[in-house]
Simulated assay, not measured.
Amino acid sequence: MTTTVLAAGYGGSEVLTITTERLPEPGPGQVRVKVRAIGVNPVDHKTYSGAMSADPARLPIRLGSEASGVVDAVGDGVTAVTVGDEVIAYRASGAYTTDLLVPESALTPKPATLGWPEAAGLMLTGATAWHALVASGAHEGDTVLVHGGAGGVGQMVLQLARLWGISVVATAGPANQNLLRELGATPITYGEGLLDRARSAAPGGYAAALDLIGTDEAIDTSLALVAADRVVSIAAFGRARDGITLIGGGPGSDPGTELRNTARAELAALAGAGKLTVTVDRSYPLAQAGAAHDYLRSGHARGKVILLP
């Protein structure tokens, strides 16, 4: 038997339920993974909040897209992995479960040096950060402004930028200024006077701006500093009229599927070599997925929130 978290309706975390199902068997090209850890992401809540869709025909909704675990069974035609392999599953629909069925193509070998929670929290934020930096057009020697540097994606952006020789000025609240410094960025606080602080922090100007939080303050500040097509956002979908570059899963955005898939092996290699760190803020039992969502939505998470089956 396998245990799975489902959204039985639309609303807040109270609609999440735990169900027990028969152990799934892999079909051709599929792999069954015994899950060790699951990454929690804002899109997981948005999926059942009603903000994206409230179509009753979609219920119940399976949640999650990234996990780590051990290959437990393989279907016909699978050649890249065998039973016992430690793997990372990304773009893994329905990852909030103890036994996950995924296509072979969704798996990346897990580095032996990477813990289960860190592996489960690597790919979505890492691939998003990779995509954002590439979409910005920034190169070695450039300076970029990052809004929301202390979050999961922000921390990945800062680390990748440092590896790629890109300087970063990043915003965060007062409590996270030291964290930004540790990740190699010049920290500034958001709020009144942000534009002046951003200008002072980079007298030579910015090549691009990355918005990871979706606020009007972030977009307005960015547009005052760089051309609209050099503003990349993963969240400000309501500002498409301004000509900014939208990436991810929102309306009118570039999903960057091929680029993100290509990045997976490099992200795993960097993390395995200790050059890329996944900060795990909190872990919750799978049965407490609702509490994990409530914490993530509070805006206080400093890194990844993880579920443990």
Rank of each mutant, 00 (worst) to 15 (best):
D76A: 14
A8L: 09
S68W: 09
G126C: 08
Q30I: 01
T221K: 01
G27D: 12
A265K: 11
K46Y: 15
G64K: 00
A228K: 14
D281K: 01
A119L: 01
T79C: 00
R239V: 09
F237C: 03
V134T: 14
G75Q: 02
T79Q: 14
A80S: 15
G137L: 11
E21G: 11
L195M: 08
L259G: 02
G165W: 10
L101K: 00
E118N: 06
T215Q: 10
V15W: 05
I18N: 07
A289N: 03
V83T: 14
Q155L: 15
H131A: 12
L210E: 06
D242A: 09
L16Q: 01
I166Q: 09
V231A: 02
I219H: 07
L223I: 13
G11N: 07
G151P: 03
P255G: 08
R241S: 11
R239T: 08
T82A: 15
W130H: 15
A54S: 15
P109G: 09
T189Y: 00
V35Y: 00
T221S: 07
A95E: 09
E86L: 12
A73T: 04
G299W: 04
A207E: 12
A207T: 10
D44V: 04
A89C: 04
L307A: 05
L107W: 07
A92G: 05
G29Q: 02
L158P: 03
A80W: 04
A132F: 07
G204K: 00
H45I: 14
A57K: 12
L183R: 10
E140M: 14
S65Q: 11
D229Q: 09
Q288K: 13
T17D: 13
V81P: 00
A224Q: 05
Y206L: 00
R241Q: 11
L122H: 07
V153H: 01
